[in-house]
């Protein structure tokens, strides 16, 4: 993991020499991944398997996933305030493959450039990010994998 990260940092220096060191460090913080046919990220971002129980916590946490802000999930009807900006996620694991879901959580803009859904694992290309969040993805790679394990449980 260490070598992968520094390789990525050097890569970006080579790409755009004028970029500040800060930005290189920023870029180094997300792992490389491969998008297959603009539709899916099939390989997991981490070696450690996702933990669905923690994924549920991340999903609900308003400072992390806050996924309920926009999505209805019937099995979470004990939780207040499900939003209706996005589609209900009931049965999403029947509709989408794990890789398709991974891409939608990592960076849904690859699928739909106009979407309101945030990219949860991206650090570049943002405008005027608040200092506390600058250069940080919304979720860590492991948290993404945990959320995905939780999404896998959404079958009908």
């Amino acid at each position: 993991m260490q070598t992968k990260m520094s390789r990525r940092a050097y890569g970006s220096i080579a790409l755009a020499g004028a970029l500040t060191l800060a930005i290189n460090v920023v870029w180094a913080e997300t792992m490389k991944y491969e998008v297959v046919d603009g539709e899916a990220i099939n390989a997991a971002l981490t070696d450690q398997a996702g933990d669905a129980a923690n994924g549920k916590k991340v999903f609900l946490n308003r400072k992390k996933g806050n996924c309920l802000a926009c999505h209805v999930v019937s099995s979470l009807s004990d939780q207040p305030f499900h939003g209706e900006v996005g589609p209900p996620l009931d049965g999403v694991a029947d509709r989408l493959s794990p890789g398709e879901m991974r891409l939608r959580v990592v960076n849904p803009k690859v699928v739909n450039a106009d979407t309101i859904m945030p990219a949860f694992y991206r650090t570049d290309g943002f405008e005027r990010v608040l200092k506390d969040f600058e250069g940080k993805p919304m979720l860590s790679a492991q948290e993404v994998e945990d959320v995905l394990a939780y999404l896998q449980t959404m079958k009908e």
Partner: peptide, 14 residues
């Protein structure tokens, strides 16, 4: 219509 912030949203999205 300019996206902003870590959540990457424009006024128009909401």
């Amino acid at each position: 219509t300019q996206r902003r912030g870590q959540l990457d949203m424009a006024c128009s999205h909401c």
